[in-house]
Design a binder for these strands. Structure first.
Length: 417
RNA sequence: CGGGGUAUAGCGAAGUGGUAUCGCGCUUGGUUCGGGACCAAGAGAUCGGCGGUUCAAAUCCGCCUACCCCGACCA
């Protein structure tokens, strides 16, 4: 993409009341725009990042048998009354139409997915089944804050599993944990992310969160470094030792973190509400056993911004960067601009995702914008580099600058992306 | 929802009673051209909203709204 056509611009400064690091960096770089507290627009660069995050999650969900669907965000009151959550789910956005019929904006989708699957599943032969969606969720947070980390409208991947018995759920639950870590590995967050015991289990005593270490995180976790498992502060008083290795909890390390995922064994909590049963091999009716598995792409984008940055701006992992290469022309010479246009075409033909800074701006402006936007590879063409038939290549996360021959560019990237 | 703070040009800020100032950005011309260039000339604000006090309100008072922070909350 030519940067000259990008309608967004970077900003040198934003208001002093925006103290959230992720919001500050993402707004300055032109990735997101705040409409209202906890409500953001994803601008072209930000949308590319969020789409890449979604695709990584999508691929891993598909790999564990998930079938993608898209459920409504506007949902009728009755289904929430069926599960007794119309009045008990504080964060539910409730609204009514002109005729007085009441609705909720989807804050979670057990109420939709359970009756949905009930229409198709009747026998043990139909189980297990796994469906998921990536959709906008609405939660009336009493206090939206921390940029993308706690919004009133946010993206959520929610997968729901349906099983004939608990043993099958348990196996799938373990599989989900492994799938989640595959996602975190691809996001370069695996080393910072801990499987964390947390409250909220409807079926099992604890749910599990995926907590990613971050200085500005809202959550506090206690880590058993021996087995790399953590415990949310909310349950630490209920336990005395690591559930895995029996290490005394006094040896745990305290840390701030962001909840980037949360999985639950729901058991029959929702299937009972909707009378969702199946016939087993003996012809007996049994409750369907459920699990649910959440992960927030928008919160993950905020988390990545919190973690991958320096004093100059963002530093995107290659897997989620809006573009792989930031190609910058430093020259006002027309002939050189023609060469740059051609090189841009060639780079694109190599299959590289390129942001081409063809703007009529000074070198300083372009280089500072490039640092702020945080694309992993910066490639510069100028009179200086052209004399050597070369471009300058620098990685965003390094100060090392190297010249490479234009004809060798394809080789350079072949071994790196 | 409790406590605290903020609201002035597109963005960021100054301005404690006399009709609004600066920086960035924008327009025009010129000079620059590898780390947010320089000179000159411009455009752009009914000072968050409503009401009040006053000869006079961005400024004082009241109410409202929005945003930020701390806390509570976060199936």
């Amino acid at each position: 993409m030519r940067q000259s056509i990008l309608f967004t611009k970077t900003r040198k400064e934003i208001g002093t009341d925006e103290v959230s690091l992720n919001a500050s960096l993402l707004i300055r770089g032109g990735f997101i725009d705040k409409l209202s507290a906890g409500i953001y627009t994803y601008l072209p660069l930000g949308l590319k990042v969020i789409d890449k995050i979604k695709n990584i999650i999508r691929e891993e969900m598909n790999a564990m048998g998930g079938q993608e669907i898209l459920m409504p965000a506007l949902t009728p009151k009755e289904i929430w009354e069926t599960t007794n959550r119309w009045n008990n789910f504080d964060a539910l956005f409730r609204l009514s139409n002109i005729e007085g019929k009441e609705y909720a904006l989807g804050a979670t989708h057990e109420e939709i997915v359970t009756p949905l699957l009930k229409k198709y599943i009747f026998s043990y032969k139909d189980l297990p089944k796994f469906v998921y969606q990536i959709q906008t969720k609405f939660r009336n947070e009493p206090r939206a804050k921390s940029g993308l980390l706690r919004g009133r409208e946010f993206l959520m991947k929610d997968l729901y599993s349906f099983h004939a018995d608990q043993n099958d759920l348990d196996k799938y639950y373990e599989k989900a944990i492994r799938a989640y870590f595959k996602v975190f590995k691809r996001l370069e967050l695996d080393k910072l992310t801990y499987l964390t015991f947390a409250s909220g289990g409807a079926f099992s005593k604890y749910s599990h969160e995926f907590q990613t270490l971050a200085a500005n995180g809202e959550d506090t976790i206690y880590i058993c470094e021996k087995c790399k498992i953590a415990y949310n502060k909310e349950i630490i008083n209920e336990i005395s030792e690591c559930q895995n290795c029996k290490l005394d909890k006094d040896k745990f390390k305290e840390a701030k973190s962001i909840e980037t995922g949360n999985i639950f064994k729901l058991g029959s909590r929702f299937s009972k509400s909707f009378d969702f049963k199946f016939k087993d091999k003996d012809g007996q009716e049994q409750d369907v056993i459920m699990g649910c598995y959440g992960m927030g792409p928008s919160r993950i984008m905020g988390t990545l911004a919190e973690i991958f940055n320096d004093g100059k701006g963002l530093i995107w992992p290659i897997t989620v960067t809006p573009f792989t290469v930031h190609f910058i022309l430093i020259s006002k010479d027309n002939a050189l601009a023609k060469k740059a246009d051609k090189l841009y075409d060639d780079l694109t033909k190599m299959g590289l995702e390129v942001l081409y800074d063809d703007r009529d701006e000074t070198a300083g402006v372009k280089l500072n914008d490039s640092d702020l936007i945080g694309i992993p590879f910066r490639l510069i063409l100028s009179e200086k580099t052209l004399k050597a038939d070369s471009v300058e290549i620098k990685r965003r996360d390094s100060d090392k600058v190297e010249l490479i021959k234009i004809v060798k560019i394809a080789d350079y990237f072949k071994s790196r992306i």
